[in-house]
Design a protein around this nucleic acid. Structure first.
Lengths: 332, 332
DNA sequence: AACGATGGCGTCAACGTTGACGTAAGTCAA
DNA sequence: TTGACTTACGTCAACGTTGACGCCATCGTT
């Protein structure tokens, strides 16, 4: 609830109309050099800051963008926020930040609020099954970029990593290093994008080298705990597995701990690969082989696409899919 | 740039004045049950959402709070953001989120922007040496809570952990478990609050048990790398050290890795304790003894104090200092 | 000398909402 | 029957800014 100087205050001090001060502040032209100098002096003196609420009310640009993630405490997420913040800063925008906890209801609430605040655009990691909800906002004219999923909807952009290919790469790596009895611990969260990793994984087995056995697949919660449980289930089915690909690094770490607890040596007895390359992955022992995502690139693309949408709405952008890279450490 | 239904649209549909619709929407009273029902129906039909810009312009409450951290990618920080977001949600506010990268200049920019957006209040982890800057905004009427530092300034609240006591506890624990040649790796970032941990550490040696040697102190960057460097410097000076307290857990992990690389066994040859209890600390091998901070409590207190300040400005709150707890794992 | 173009302003209304105030009809007590 | 109160609205202005438009010098052309 700041109560700072207004255009009128500045105008009164300089002896011009508020409209002229506005022109100077926004560098619209239509004023003499002499007035410019005097106005800017007064602006400085009074510490004038334009009121974005008033400005936004009339220009229909609030100078804000929203970032909506699933879970703030997911380390994946702040890195993204950082990139977006910096890009937003350059275009003079400030960032709203919220999470949906994977709950469509909560996400709806968040979007109502963002809409109320007249955000210029939103980047969102969608809660499961909310594409329709989001498409609704896009149709109402809110520039919207969906991250981490591939969607094709009018007025809705999407940016994601090619994790299908990543999973294929991981599986191929396991095969190339001589593993023959391979399992995957998938995520039990049932949205299309989680399934893509399974599809990529299975694809590596379509023309397998000699002696490769059909891959094994279980699903668990995408957490460290879930990874441990998933590994246990896998080993109960096939104690002779010699290679594991986990849905994400948290699960891979959980699986690694569990395998070691059962007396398996990693990577000698069993190789383990994850996905996402979170910070922890380089620090565990042995270091985790994983799929690295170029997150700065993701934020850069997301914000780029968002700005395109803000500047030129009502177009149908094609989904952006970013390549990923296999990082080989000691766990395979 | 949403362009949704307005009070006028709703009013036109129902056949009342916009003012009446406003009264219903804000539940001000002064309308009949019949109109209430009809208005709410129309609100539903048209998907009316109040425009916070217009509302904020006149009520001088924008329905937003700001959270300004040092570094978004610090895992400490999103947890805080999460707590604040939930609390803010309950009072119908949305959260701006920004980082200052420890740079006073950048922080100034962030605050200009937040001021422009008429935030109702801000919670900030201050960049070094910016208390005056912040006090300026507080004086101009912006409710402001400083986190992680103890400040006493008019109109400025502060909430922090008692890390001085935490450091004392860690040192006492090292002494109690028989360590006699103890070093500390401090942070080279020179702000008062980083020094507090050193003070607390040294305090444990004021009445030492028999045979305790004077403690050793070096400073390094507060990162994993810095921790490794700090340990190296310490061991060069005193290869016989048997206990280390690090400024934070990242440094402690770096120090642990370095010590192991030099052939020291942890904890047999040398005990290591950290501070902050980040997620990694429980996962490294051996598990890291550390000082646990009740972060949910910190966010709760910060937002509580902020709301007090928003509801009743112009008071001089007393600093809140929260107790901390020693968590003993295998590294000591 | 007359004319159009241009530069440098000012005026007015509007964005969507709420605060302050007004008013007509109804209620109730004396 | 009067008058004081209350209920249920409506009217108007204001918040701080910008879009649209208008006005008056000045200047260059013909």
């Amino acid at each position: 609830m700041p109560r700072g100087a207004t255009l009128r205050d500045v105008a009164g001090r300089v002896g011009v109309s508020p409209r002229t001060v506005s022109r100077v502040v926004n560098d619209e032209g239509g004023f003499s050099e002499a007035t410019r100098v005097r106005v800017l002096e007064a602006v400085e003196d009074l510490g004038y800051q334009p009121n974005m609420l008033a400005r936004g009310l009339i220009t229909r640009r609030s100078g804000t963008v929203g970032l909506v993630g699933v879970d703030m405490t997911d380390p994946f997420f702040p890195a993204m926020a950082d990139g977006i913040q910096n890009a937003a800063r350059e275009t003079g925008r400030t960032m709203f930040f919220a999470s949906n906890d994977g709950d469509p209801q909560l996400q709806a609430e968040v979007f109502r609020s963002l809409w109320s605040h007249a955000v210029d655009g939103v980047i969102v990691f969608p809660a499961p099954g909310t594409i329709e909800q989001l498409a609704g906002y896009a149709k109402r004219g809110m520039p919207l970029v969906v991250v981490d999923d591939i969607v094709e909807f009018p007025n809705l952009a999407s940016v994601s990593f090619d994790l299908e290919d990543g999973a294929t790469k991981a599986a191929q790596h396991l095969l190339a290093t001589g593993r023959r009895r391979i399992g995957m611990i998938g995520s039990e969260v049932a949205v299309p994008r989680t399934r893509r990793r399974e599809r990529g994984f299975l694809q590596a087995f379509e023309n397998p080298p000699a002696g490769v056995q059909p891959p094994e697949l279980v699903r668990a919660r995408p957490t460290i705990h879930g990874g441990a449980e998933g590994l246990q289930t896998l080993l109960e089915r096939r104690p002779d597995l010699d290679g594991i690909f986990a849905f994400n690094d948290s699960m891979a770490v959980g699986a690694m701990r569990a395998a070691q607890a059962y007396g398996y040596r990693v990577p000698d007895d069993i190789a383990i690969a994850g996905c996402n390359d979170i910070e922890m992955s380089a620090l565990v022992n042995p270091g985790l082989t994983t799929i690295r995502l170029d997150r700065p690139r993701l934020s850069a693309e997301a914000i780029r696409v968002l700005h395109e949408l803000i500047e030129e709405p009502a177009r149908n952008p094609t989904p952006v899919v970013l390549p990923v890279e296999l990082v080989i450490r000691e766990s395979t």
